[in-house]
């Protein structure tokens, strides 16, 4: 049933929409090379790069659209790309 005035009561419900399927290129982050400058974290339009419990940055491929801003902005070339196989 449509809510009154189509109000959305569940904050951040867009997480149901897995935009990872949009990708043509997959960024791969090499944790060993990462200097934790946070560039990839802060510039990601999806917020798809987050710290894991060990303090390493990880790419969430459920949402990563493959824009590769992270790769372009990485100062130490810790991020590379591979073509997605369909």
């Amino acid at each position: 049933m449509v809510t009154i005035a189509a109000i959305i009561y569940e904050p951040g419900s867009s997480i149901k929409n897995k935009t990872g399927t949009w990708r043509t290129f997959r960024p791969i982050l090499d944790t060993n090379k990462c200097v934790k400058c946070e560039n990839c974290y802060i510039f990601c339009p999806e917020g798809a790069i987050q710290e894991d419990e060990n303090g390493n940055f990880k790419i969430d491929y459920d949402y990563c659209k493959g824009c590769l801003i992270c790769m372009n902005e990485c100062p130490v070339n810790a991020i590379t790309k591979v073509r997605e196989e369909k």
């Binding site: 049933m1 449509v2 009154i4 005035a5 109000i7 959305i8």
Partner: peptide, 28 residues
């Protein structure tokens, strides 16, 4: 109860009424 803006209850008012919901809102 249905609509008020309050950081303690973050709701989205006035979203895009896609064809899947628009007619229902008019009927309401």
């Amino acid at each position: 109860k249905h609509a008020y803006l309050d950081p303690d209850r973050p709701i989205t008012q006035g979203p895009v009424g896609v064809p899947d919901c628009y007619m229902e809102t008019r009927k309401q």
